[in-house]
Simulated scan of single mutants.
Amino acid sequence: MTDDTSTDSGPVEPHHEDLGSRLNWLRAGVLGANDGIVSTAGLVVGVAGATDSREALLTAGLAGLLAGSLSMAAGEYVSVSTQRDSEKAAIALEKRELREQPEEELDELTRLLTDRGLAPELAREAAEQLTERDALRAHARVELGIDPDELTNPWHAAWASFIAFTVGALLPLLAIVLPPQSWRLPVTVLSVLAALAVTGWGSARLGAAPVRPAVWRNVAGGALAMGVTYLAGTLLGAVGA
């Protein structure tokens, strides 16, 4: 019975951890695309308020796309690199403690398992079995919440942010430069608001949050951004004329 319990408790937690990790990546992708949509839409709509030049709109949109995607990628790389360094340091400390004070670490693992709801005797037996199998992995997962074999990869995070932002930014960029002049603004506004509704719905579903408030917040925020930048562009264009 003890073996079944320890065996069952092993893979269940990593399963939930993996699921949570995948959801976090998906949520980051949705939010990255959302940032690309809003920032690029605000930029090109603002420029559209000042000029009708397709070349100017394309130049501004591409500049915003590249600057935003590279900034997002660099930020994610730095952030995740820092997280990875912290995880490595925590694992190295745990490895040293296991080598220098194994009995204290066994007591600590027992206490952690007891805190998770196991009876003290069962927690001790499970701690001994986990320690015998792979002490470092057991402590990393139970005590630190880290899988030593699946540390966060900063390059994966950087590329994911770069691609998500680029995909989101392409929508307002194409919407503002492809249609005829008289259709540019309405096509862009409608396309952006529809895309923001989708990303708001997606982020709410991934976060198990109410959908309607998330969609309305997203759409209202995007509409406000485009309205403010368009007004600013119109005023600057009038001053320049």
Rank of each mutant, 00 (worst) to 15 (best):
residue 34 N to T: 04
residue 35 D to M: 04
residue 35 D to L: 05
residue 36 G to C: 04
residue 38 V to S: 02
residue 39 S to Q: 00
residue 39 S to G: 03
residue 41 A to D: 03
residue 41 A to Q: 06
residue 42 G to Y: 04
residue 46 G to I: 01
residue 47 V to P: 08
residue 49 G to S: 11
residue 49 G to T: 11
residue 50 A to N: 10
residue 58 L to C: 03
residue 61 G to D: 14
residue 61 G to H: 13
residue 62 L to S: 08
residue 62 L to R: 01
residue 64 G to I: 06
residue 64 G to C: 10
residue 67 A to V: 14
residue 68 G to L: 12
residue 69 S to F: 08
residue 70 L to V: 15
residue 70 L to F: 15
residue 70 L to N: 07
residue 71 S to L: 07
residue 71 S to Y: 03
residue 73 A to Q: 07
residue 76 E to I: 07
residue 76 E to S: 04
residue 79 S to Y: 09
residue 80 V to S: 10
residue 82 T to E: 12
residue 82 T to V: 15
residue 86 S to P: 00
residue 86 S to W: 04
residue 87 E to I: 01
residue 90 A to H: 13
residue 95 K to N: 11
residue 99 R to P: 00
residue 99 R to A: 14
residue 102 P to N: 11
residue 102 P to L: 05
residue 103 E to T: 13
residue 104 E to M: 10
residue 105 E to G: 09
residue 105 E to K: 09
residue 108 E to S: 15
residue 111 R to S: 14
residue 113 L to I: 06
residue 113 L to F: 02
residue 114 T to K: 06
residue 114 T to I: 07
residue 118 L to Y: 14
residue 118 L to S: 13
residue 118 L to K: 09
residue 119 A to V: 08
residue 119 A to I: 01
residue 120 P to D: 12
residue 124 R to I: 03
residue 125 E to L: 11
residue 127 A to C: 10
residue 128 E to H: 13
residue 128 E to T: 11
residue 129 Q to L: 15
residue 130 L to N: 06
residue 132 E to K: 14
residue 132 E to F: 07
residue 132 E to V: 09
residue 133 R to Y: 09
residue 133 R to P: 00
residue 142 V to S: 06
residue 142 V to T: 14
residue 143 E to M: 09
residue 144 L to G: 09
residue 144 L to F: 12
residue 145 G to R: 07
residue 146 I to W: 11
residue 149 D to P: 02
residue 149 D to E: 15
residue 149 D to I: 05
